[in-house]
Nucleic acid binder design. Structure first.
Lengths: 192, 192, 192, 192
DNA sequence: CCGTAAACGAGACGGTACGTCTGGTCTTTGG
DNA sequence: CCAAAGACCAGACGTACCGTCTCGTTTACGG
């Protein structure tokens, strides 16, 4: 490894302060108006301390945001429809937090512009969502609700896409009824 | 109105050159690295000529991009599934053009950050997509494939969301098979 | 020339404001604590306006300082000693101004570190001082006070050097008596 | 005093390495581009080892430079002119060394900006030069070459100033002829 | 057919943020 | 307690971009 053996170690409180400050600024002003100086000032840190950890502004926002978007495998609720509903609720909750609302659209733009960031996005965010979907589908197969599992990418797109569009583009109907309607229709779409 | 009565009229070739230059720059370098100076230089125009037409960079990109995203009402293909397939193909084609690939994610970030832009986005892009969806659903009801039409926003999210996710996030499976799979499952989801 | 033919011309008031602001900041805080941001703020200008005119901080300070160090040919006072006294007084006045006191030592360091700046320094400041010395010597020869003129560089060093040392290093004796003593001794040194 | 009584004694090799590294960097890149990190790296030392010895960058450069500028009382050569010549040669040699050429102008800027440093400069460098001048003058008085000694500060300025200007500003004529010419004229200036 | 008004290319303007670098301090491990 | 290593804060550096403004010139329309 290239881990240094000597010298002053990184201060974990600085790590935390930087990420917390980033989230604060994102929540208050949104991605477009986030500045590195503002984050540094808020964190009580120097800019060098930030750039020692993250090479660019995009990496910083990525790190501060993606960590909070982490999903847990949804608990078994007894049926495919309710499992999907739980998963959708979880995604809506994480992607709909005040911080996420301010940062995710900008983050998506960064990710689609930077292959390196895109690769990391695949391995963390996308992979994690697909794990959760796989778990739900496996349970449905085990219950006998499904004969064969649909293409994972298609189902992923069918689940995450509508949530994304509703959160960042439409946001008109009531949230829970949207989640319920979506879960029901997805179950139908999958079970044919 | 604020229509001027006298003075030199706007040169339409400048209009066209600006939009063409914007699309070129978007395609080559993407939204993040598009600069107004680059567009002006490419168009052989001054920056004032751009700002006379578009108040901000966002408006310029919006105008250059959204015009090409315009959908036509899909022709009647005889069934709901094939109608949906045609609509999805159309959306994939317009949103998947080289220009759109470079600009849409950034444009979405702008839209979600600027309420004024969001309103215009609703009235043009979103409304147009929903018109097409409504036409397809009406035909399905008329054919007797559907009893009652689902909530428009939910179906819109169900259709546009997966397309968006596949284009800008996943893009792994083959395009036509994705479109086919998605159309089939949407038809199932709608007809129950 | 590479003078641009089109475009907005430089605003002379900005030129003046930048130089005036530079002199103000030099006088108030000295060279070591002068910052480009402070100059820009004081001038009511953007940093780009400064860097469009001066490539580096050194060039800016050089331009702002050297202009004020310009000497006039001393008037004929009737004798070599009094001519030298007048010249020394002039140098003491220009190099001893509040702005010069704050900037000259730093400027000398820049000049001796940057050959390009040194060349310009030779052609303006140094050449101008030597013109004045030459004029004084010529008059002395014409009066018959001198048979042959001493080496110009040596006399230049003999005149400017002590002034420099007194101003920036010693500064203990009373100024006019120093000038008088120096002028007398230089006249002796020259006339043998 | 703040002399430590216990613990590990300072490593004299580190002392030497720091000063040697400072002189190397000064010679190679000049004062303006000397950084503490560069000195530390070159010395194979940590920055703390430097700051434990010198409070500021200025003090470090001062220490590294001034030590080499130390003059010895010039030996009696039999006449005022030759004594002055010997002293001038010594000053030219010390202030004209590669290290001094790179550091003295910057050092002068520091000294004139920082009263504390100026005081130490007076007590070491300036005082030492004046000791040498005094010794030369005393000998001249003793020989009967001089009736009364001139003002020490004025003579100091008359001697050191020209040397400084020639070394750092003009540097055109041949060195030894400059020294000879200067010594002769100073002797004339002093003896009237 | 001439004057007015607004368009045009070019590029300077004030302002803001970027990512880098430096100075001087602090904190670790190890001798 | 001292050593090297290197993280820390603060803040200046020079660059890039935005949206505005100013130049000198060109081009339509109305009187």
């Amino acid at each position: 490894m290239d881990t240094p053996r000597t010298g002053r170690p990184r201060d974990e409180r600085v790590d935390a302060a930087i990420l917390a400050a980033t989230r604060d600024v994102l929540t208050e002003t949104g991605y477009a108006r986030l500045t590195m100086d503002a984050v540094a000032a808020r964190a009580g840190a120097g800019k060098a301390a930030i750039y020692r950890r993250y090479a660019t502004k995009q990496e910083l926002v990525y790190a501060a945001t993606v960590h909070d978007l982490d999903l847990r495998i949804p608990p078994d609720t007894g049926s495919l429809t309710t499992d999907l509903k739980a998963l959708i609720d979880d995604i809506l909750a994480t992607m709909g937090s005040p911080t996420a609302l301010g940062s995710v659209p900008g983050l998506m733009a960064d990710v689609s512009a930077d292959p390196a960031l895109a690769a990391r996005f695949q391995q963390t965010f996308v992979a994690r969502q697909q794990e959760c979907i796989t778990a739900v589908l496996d349970r449905a197969v085990h219950r006998g609700e499904l004969q064969d599992k649909p293409d994972l990418d298609v189902l992923h797109a069918l689940l995450a896409g509508p949530v994304f569009v509703w959160l960042y583009l439409l946001r008109r109907s009531e949230r829970d009824s949207f989640a319920h309607d979506l879960a029901t229709r997805l179950a139908d779409a999958v079970t044919k």
